[in-house]
Every structure is written in structure tokens, then in C-alpha cells.
Computed example of a mutant assay.
Amino acid sequence: MSAAQKSRAFLKWAGGKYNLVNAIASHLTPASTLVEPFVGAGSVFLNTDYPQYQLNDINADLIALYQLLQRRHQSFIADAKSLFTAQTNQRDAYLSLRQQFNLSTDSYERSVLFLYLNRHGYNGLCRYNLSGKFNVPFGSYKKPYFPEAELHYFAEKAQRARFSCTSYQQVIQQAQADTVIYCDPPYVPLSKTASFTSYASQGFDLDDQAQLANLAEKAQQRGITVVISNHDTTWTRKIYQQAVLHSLQVGRSISQKGATRGKVAELFAVYQAMTTPMTPPVAVLPQKAG
């Protein structure tokens, strides 16, 4: 896939995989379905070609937006576009619309505002406080881009997808044969001050990191290939020691200070499916004669 053919996500996203999709795709095996327990902005979904997709995320606002685009993208795009004006690109207007989002219980209204907040908020961050309120400050961009073509493309491709908002544990444990799983969890922090765990109301701690590796090993034993992305650290290499590891240098996408946006080492842990699963698939049961 050439750079010219790559499709961008319509959301700005911390840790988005647009620049890494070719490297990631090189580790994904053929299957009927690509399963993503942490779909995020969906760059891997948008730049691979599987017959079906199972796309999950713990962020309920994100999944509600995706499901809406899947069903009624034309009206959504028109309504969302109306919020991309000079009048709404001001701090007071942003704070008012952010409050409207936090008070709203209407799924459609929240989805329209979610896209507005994503494009007008600081650095494309998606962050909630402990009360579950979106609290990203105003971004002060000259003219936020309205991703109309990207929204249409996502809506078209979403016809192949099934979206869910549940735990990564459930998604991986329920994965069937003839699927391949790509995991893009919140990354292990490179320092104590670099932790980024408020993406959804629930955090993702080191116990989750270790549990994800354990679930990948079990899926591998069931005959499913699992690929996990993370920072390349001593600790991640330890928890992924049962996988084949691949490392490469990549540019940092989110940083407090522009001057510190240097290269960091990215790790891909590849759990290649065992051709003879150690435990038989649940669906395969002996049949009685007659």
C-alpha cells in the first residue's frame, strides 16, 4: 500500500496509527475477520482489507459515533459541518458546547458535539475527569479542518464492521477461529509523568498490560494470531517474552512540549497462531453416530 492510497481517520487521536499501518499490516495474517479490542480512531481498520471487522473500544462516545455513521451518515455529516464556523471557533463558544456535550444524554447530539470537540480541542486529546465529564481545553486553531471525505469513507467501510463497547478481555476471549486480533492498548508510560490513562473513565494499569499479554498467549493457543503494539521498554519485553518481537523508531504524536517530540522505540509483539491448537475450539464437539 503506497502512502498516496492510505486513508486518514476523521478524528485526531493520541497514539493514532496512520504512520504505522504498513508496518502493522505486515504482521497481520489473512483471516475472515480483523478484531480490534482498542479501535481508537480506526487507522488500521481503514487501511486493511478484511471481509469483516469487529471493532471495539471502551469509550462509549466513540462507539456511539461510529454506529451512527454506519446507519445515517448523511444527516450526521450535514449537522456536524454546521458547527465548523468562525463563530464556533472561539474559546467561549467551545466551552459552551463542551458543557452542552457533558449535560446531554441524547446520543445523536453527543456524537455531533464529540466530533466538534475533537477537532477544536487541544491537540486532539480525548480526556474525561473522574466524574466522566469531557475536560479538554480549547485548542485555538486558526481554522479546524472538517473531515467530510474521511467521514464518507469511514461510513462506507463501516458496512463491513460490527461495533461494540465492552472490555478488551471479553472481546479477546470470545474471538473465534479464522480471526486475527490487533491490539493497540494505552501504552506503558515512558516516565512517571508521561502516563496517559484518562482516555475513558476507566484507566489501564500495569496489571491490565500483563493480563493483555496473557490473553494473547491463550488466543495463540486457540489458533488465533494476535499482534500488540506498545512502547519498547524492558518491562514490555518481559511481559511479551512469549511473542516474536519487532522494534522500530517512530515519531512521538502527542507531547506536552513540541521540542520533546523526538523518536521513540515502538514494539510489535506477534503471537503467531499455533497450527495445532493446544485446546480444541469450543465449537468443535464429537458427534454421536446416527
Rank of each mutant, 00 (worst) to 15 (best):
S2R: 12
S2E: 14
A4R: 10
A9C: 13
K12Q: 09
A14T: 13
G15C: 04
K17W: 01
K17G: 01
Y18K: 03
Y18H: 07
N22W: 08
N22L: 12
S26D: 08
T29A: 14
V35P: 08
E36L: 07
A41H: 01
A41N: 00
S43P: 04
L46D: 15
D49Q: 11
Q52R: 08
Y53F: 11
Q54R: 12
L55A: 13
D61T: 00
L62F: 13
L62V: 09
I63L: 02
I63K: 00
I63H: 01
A64V: 03
Q67D: 09
Q70Y: 05
H73F: 11
A78N: 13
L83E: 11
Q90A: 12
Q90K: 15
D92L: 14
D92G: 11
Q100G: 07
N102L: 05
T105F: 03
D106F: 07
S107L: 07
E109M: 04
F114N: 03
L115M: 08
Y116M: 13
H120D: 03
H120R: 03
Y122F: 14
N123K: 15
L125I: 13
C126W: 09
R127W: 14
K133H: 06
N135R: 06
P137C: 04
K143N: 13
Y145L: 06
A149P: 02
A149E: 15
F154I: 02
K157C: 00
R160F: 04
S164Y: 09
Y168Q: 08
Q170A: 13
Q173T: 13
Q174D: 14
Q174H: 12
Q176Y: 02
Y182E: 08
D184K: 00
P186S: 07
P189S: 08
S191T: 01
K192E: 15
A194S: 15
F196M: 10
F196C: 09
A200L: 00
Q202L: 11
F204A: 03
L206M: 04
D207H: 08
Q209Y: 04
Q211R: 14
E217T: 15
E217S: 14
E217A: 13
V226Q: 11
N230R: 12
H231I: 00
T233R: 05
T233Y: 07
T236M: 11
R237Q: 15
Y240P: 01
Q241L: 05
Q242M: 00
V244F: 02
S247V: 13
L248I: 10
T260L: 14
G262K: 07
V264H: 12
F268P: 03
A269Y: 04
V270M: 09
Y271Q: 09
Y271S: 06
Y271L: 06
M274Y: 05
A283V: 04
A283M: 06
L285I: 13
P286N: 11
G290W: 09
